Simulated assay, not measured.
Amino acid sequence: MKIGLFFGTFNPIHIGHLIIANHLAEFSDLEQIWLVVTPHNPLKKKSTLLDDYHRLEMVHLATADYPKLKPSDIEFKLPQPNYTVNTLAHLQEKYPQNEFALIMGEDNLNSLQKWKNHEVILQNHELYVYPRITSEPQPKPGFLENFKAKIHTIDAPIVEISSTFIRNAIKGKKNINPMLPAKVADYIEHNLFYTK
């Protein structure tokens, strides 16, 4: 099975994430999309990042009605800090029958050369890149030249919703329910998340 890995803190997951994940599940050759919840890095200040399991629970709630979208806590069990190259190696070892591809925004592709062992990622995995409105610097000329066949640019809708915007709006007592799956909005409201 060909699986796309969509990494994120999902703090919280919102309809933008679902639109991209579902678009890739329906309009690419990826058979499933795993939404990989990135755990809190113990070396970083926690600030507004919710507990790992609350964020995972919200991904479960958001994807329950989408059979091709699966929540994943695989990084919770791996050493910190998490490097994508290590997670990919672990998954390939654990599920040798599957082929794993990486889903990322255009902004991440532009900064890929700063990632740990990015050449290994590009050699062993395909990338599915969705458009972002970005002011990120472009990658060095020729950097991706040898890997063009492995990079698929996906014509997904550009969704400019951010989890930061949602957290700030909740704190400001704004109604942002249209931006969240209903079960996620209820879960946040019930637990009084992001209010302080």
Rank of each mutant, 00 (worst) to 15 (best):
M1H: 11
I3T: 15
I3G: 07
G4E: 06
L5E: 04
L5N: 09
T9H: 03
T9C: 15
T9I: 12
F10E: 06
F10D: 08
H14M: 01
H17I: 05
L18R: 06
I19S: 12
I20S: 04
A21T: 06
E26T: 13
Q32W: 07
W34N: 08
W34R: 11
L35C: 10
L35P: 08
V36P: 05
T38S: 14
H40K: 11
N41R: 07
L43E: 15
K44F: 11
K44G: 02
K44P: 11
K45V: 13
K46H: 07
S47K: 14
T48Q: 15
L49R: 02
L50N: 09
D51V: 07
Y53H: 15
Y53M: 13
R55V: 12
L56A: 04
L56H: 09
E57V: 06
M58W: 10
V59K: 12
H60K: 15
A62R: 02
T63N: 05
Y66G: 00
K68C: 07
P71H: 04
S72E: 07
D73W: 01
D73M: 08
D73E: 13
I74D: 00
F76N: 04
F76Q: 09
K77A: 06
P79R: 05
P79I: 05
N82L: 04
T84V: 15
V85R: 04
T87C: 03
L88M: 06
A89Q: 09
A89G: 00
A89F: 00
H90K: 09
L91N: 07
Q92V: 08
Q92G: 10
Q92Y: 09
E93N: 15
E93H: 14
K94H: 10
E99S: 15
F100G: 00
A101K: 10
I103K: 03
I103Y: 02
I103H: 05
G105P: 04
E106Q: 14
L109G: 06
L109Q: 10
N110W: 00
N110Q: 11
S111Y: 00
S111F: 01
S111T: 11
S111G: 12
Q113I: 06
Q113L: 02
K114F: 05
W115C: 01
K116H: 03
N117L: 05
V120F: 05
Q123V: 08
Q123C: 12
H125C: 00
E126G: 12
L127T: 01
Y128Q: 09
P131E: 07
P131L: 08
P131C: 06
R132S: 00
S135L: 13
S135A: 13
P137S: 11
Q138H: 13
F143D: 03
F147C: 08
K148V: 09
K148A: 13
I154Q: 10
I154G: 05
I154E: 08
P157Y: 03
I158A: 02
E160Y: 00
I161E: 05
I161F: 04
S163C: 11
F165D: 12
F165Y: 14
R167I: 01
R167K: 00
N168L: 02
N168R: 09
K171M: 01
G172S: 15
G172V: 06
N175I: 10
N175A: 09
I176T: 12
I176S: 03
I176L: 08
M179I: 11
A182V: 14
A182H: 14
A185D: 03
Y187A: 05
Y187E: 09
Y187P: 03
E189V: 04
E189A: 14
E189I: 04
H190Y: 09
H190F: 03
L192T: 03
L192D: 12
Y194E: 01
